[in-house]
Simulated scan of single mutants.
Amino acid sequence: MFRHAVRATVVVVVGDLIGRALPFGHGYWVPLVAVLILRPGFSHTYGRAAARLGGTVFGLIIAGTVVQLAHPGPLASGTLSVISGGLILLFMYTGYAPVQAAGSAYTVFALAMAGVGLDQSLPARLVLTLIGGGLAMLAYALYPAWETPRLRTRLADWIKADLVYAATVVRHYAEPTLQSARDTREAVLSARASVLAWRNAVALAETEPVRQRGLSRTTEAGAEQALAEFAHVTMLLEAHLPAPGSPLLPSAATFATALRQSAEDADRAVRDHRVPSWEPVRTALATGNGEDPDGEADRMLHRAGPLMLHRAGPLLLAALEELSTALEYAAPPMTTTAPTPRAQTPA
């Protein structure tokens, strides 16, 4: 957003100076067109530039040809301008290029109704639009903001948010309180925001002319599938949260702490081009599975849902292991540190 603000500021100033220096009048059209085209993303900016310039040229050619051949009077020109205005509304939600074509035609017919010739209306609008669009494209080319290099950062944010969400849910198995709904709601909203940011980044990166993605498409697909499975298991745990005041489950507290620690560790590992290790989660599960599941306390707790936690824990770890497997296919790590071997998860 900062880069977009810098680009827009420079483009407005330069475009205004160019518009004032040109002999056409209405020099404000240059910075206006540039700002309407500029977007924070590469694909959006160049897509709108192509649609704006192509639609403007097409509309001017069609309207100019009609005026040149038919020589419509004020009444006919007014009727054509009203029709063009209706087309603007008709195409408003179908595409940017048709709207620009109809808008250009509307301008030509409205000026023709007032007696303004093509030599005054068509060249000025065409030249000013081309300059404004060219400025917008040039500004992004000189000062780009690529989303591709940030894919790994977006993925790290998503992994951390999902693990924090899972840790929040599991913690309420250890200490069922009235705050469960509020805490889990905030955690799941944060996780969903991270998912949307990741998907938006991937969509933008698909159209960027950047060769080095940092994350292969195989890694992206595998990571998405693993995190989706992890989120599904977490939501299942959330659906079976014990009621406030239920007996405590000490092993859940250890598991929640391990998930929280792994969230920070995985965030740093992915940003540093390393494969995360889930040793704290694995250790916590092994400790929890060592408890006597047939004890009297556990039989009481089973009615509150800890049996679901005992069954879901290995599923969460399996999803995390799948995530690590996907990340092993990413770009070679930047550091020379040898990767830590991962233990195999028992079936």
Rank of each mutant, 00 (worst) to 15 (best):
Y28G: 14
M1N: 12
Q100C: 09
H44A: 15
A167T: 01
P40S: 13
L128V: 03
G214Q: 08
P247M: 04
A205D: 09
A252H: 04
D265Y: 09
G25L: 08
H44K: 08
H232P: 04
A181G: 08
R274H: 13
H44F: 07
Y93K: 10
H232V: 10
T56W: 03
F109C: 11
R152K: 12
V6H: 07
R274Q: 15
Y28S: 14
E186S: 11
A221P: 03
S194R: 04
V170I: 12
A338D: 11
R282G: 15
Y106T: 08
P98R: 09
L80N: 04
T79C: 12
Q225N: 13
P293T: 00
L130I: 08
V108C: 13
T234C: 12
R342N: 10
L17Y: 13
E220T: 03
L317T: 05
L189I: 05
A318I: 06
Y93I: 06
G290V: 00
L118F: 11
P276N: 12
D298H: 02
W198E: 11
V82I: 15
A338I: 05
F109L: 13
V270T: 07
T153W: 13
A269Q: 10
G73Q: 03
P314Y: 04
S104F: 01
A258C: 13
A205V: 04
V169K: 02
L32C: 12
S104M: 06
L327A: 04
D292G: 03
R185S: 14
A8D: 09
S194Q: 10
Y106R: 04
S84A: 15
A191C: 06
G54N: 05
L36Q: 13
A110H: 10
L111F: 15
R311H: 13
A187E: 05
T345V: 15
F230W: 10
L118R: 07
F109G: 01
E291D: 11
E229D: 15
T45G: 08
V67L: 14
G245P: 07
L307C: 06
V210Q: 12
L130N: 12
M334T: 14
V12Y: 05
T218K: 07
T207F: 14
H232D: 15
A318T: 11
V233W: 05
E321I: 03
G295V: 00
L80S: 08
E264M: 11
P98F: 09
L248M: 04
I159E: 09
L241K: 06
G85H: 01
L227T: 00
N200K: 06
L53R: 00
D265A: 15
A49T: 01
G27Q: 00
H310K: 04
A191W: 01
Y96F: 09
S262K: 06
T219S: 14
L36C: 14
G103I: 00
G78F: 07
A269E: 10
T345I: 13
V108P: 07
P72N: 09
P31Q: 01
G19T: 01
A49H: 01
H273E: 15
L22E: 07
P341A: 14
A228L: 11
E175C: 02
L316S: 03
G59S: 07
A161K: 01
Q344N: 09
R125D: 10
S81D: 12
G115P: 09
V281D: 10
W158P: 03
L327H: 06
S216E: 12
S77C: 08
G59E: 06
